[in-house]
């Protein structure tokens, strides 16, 4: 029966982040955390596979001190255990560092038959961690999977790659990245939320992974972040009379030379 690991990232909800118009800095003071959107699909995929054919699901995350807030959520969604690495280093870690940290945790706590990731994280959207992880673990990667099945010691996926769709298969152990369209993540029931409190939360100290300093040094350094502000005219027609609104819009388009 498969032993599955899902890697998930705890990110700020971008809908709560405001841009300060004066200096374009970001105001995250009201932003809540969330499990990165497509990672919820990856969790759902793992739980669905195990419900269908047995096995178990671990979840793994590397983040700053706030990742603790993710643990109950991920367990409510059906993971059997969560492994968490909380370290301030995560704030400046790039995909190079994150991949080494996650790979080391997998070597220490695995082996896993299948490692699932989201197609891209909601904040960085690097779309690279699953492939990096597979390369470090020397496993094949079924990236951008729309469907995923386990058949004995093999994984089979429908990969969606922009201009083509492909049926592909790899021997286990393997890594896969899950598209947001693979499934609809469940909303945990009260029973699942209560049950989550009893499940193991295993803290993995970064130092315990035995990574040499060079592997914890980011190759990519962030110099600065600027918010994007929409500078639009915001002329909104909202009379009860739809025809009047349409006439005004048509006149506006004409004044723009667009009709």
């Amino acid at each position: 029966m498969p032993n599955i690991l899902v890697c998930f990232k705890w990110v700020l909800d971008e809908q709560d982040i405001k841009v300060r118009p004066a200096d374009l800095s970001l105001d995250s003071s009201r932003a809540k955390g969330k499990i990165s959107d497509f990672d919820r699909n990856a969790i759902e995929a793992a739980v669905g596979l195990v419900e269908a054919q047995g096995g178990r699901v671990d979840a793994l995350t590397f983040g700053g001190p706030s990742v603790k807030n993710a643990l109950k959520d991920v367990l409510s969604r059906g993971a059997d255990r969560v492994l968490w690495i909380a370290d301030p280093l995560a704030e400046t870690a790039d995909a190079f560092v994150t991949a080494h940290v996650l790979a080391a945790a997998i070597r220490q706590h695995g082996p896993y038959d299948l490692v699932l990731c989201g197609e891209g994280s909601s904040d960085a959207f690097n779309q690279q961690l699953p492939v990096r992880l597979a390369a470090l673990l020397d496993q094949p990667c079924l990236s951008f999977a729309q469907t995923l099945e386990l058949q004995g010691d093999r994984a089979r996926a429908t990969r969606k790659l922009g201009d083509s769709v492909e049926e592909a298969e790899a021997g286990l152990p393997a890594v896969a990245s899950v598209l947001g369209e693979m499934n609809k993540p469940r909303i945990p029931t009260l029973k699942q939320v209560l049950g989550a409190a009893k499940k193991p939360q295993i803290e993995v100290p970064l130092a315990a992974l035995g990574l040499e300093a060079g592997l914890l040094r980011p190759r990519s350094t962030r110099l600065g972040v600027r918010g994007f502000v929409m500078n639009r005219r915001n002329i909104i027609f909202k009379e009860p009379d739809a025809a009047a609104n349409v006439a005004r819009l048509a006149a506006s388009l004409a004044s723009e030379g667009l009709c």
Partner: peptide, 13 residues
Amino acid sequence: LYGGLAVSDEVLA
């Protein structure tokens, strides 16, 4: 970053 909310300047070694 953040789906388009922000742009970041980065240096890669």
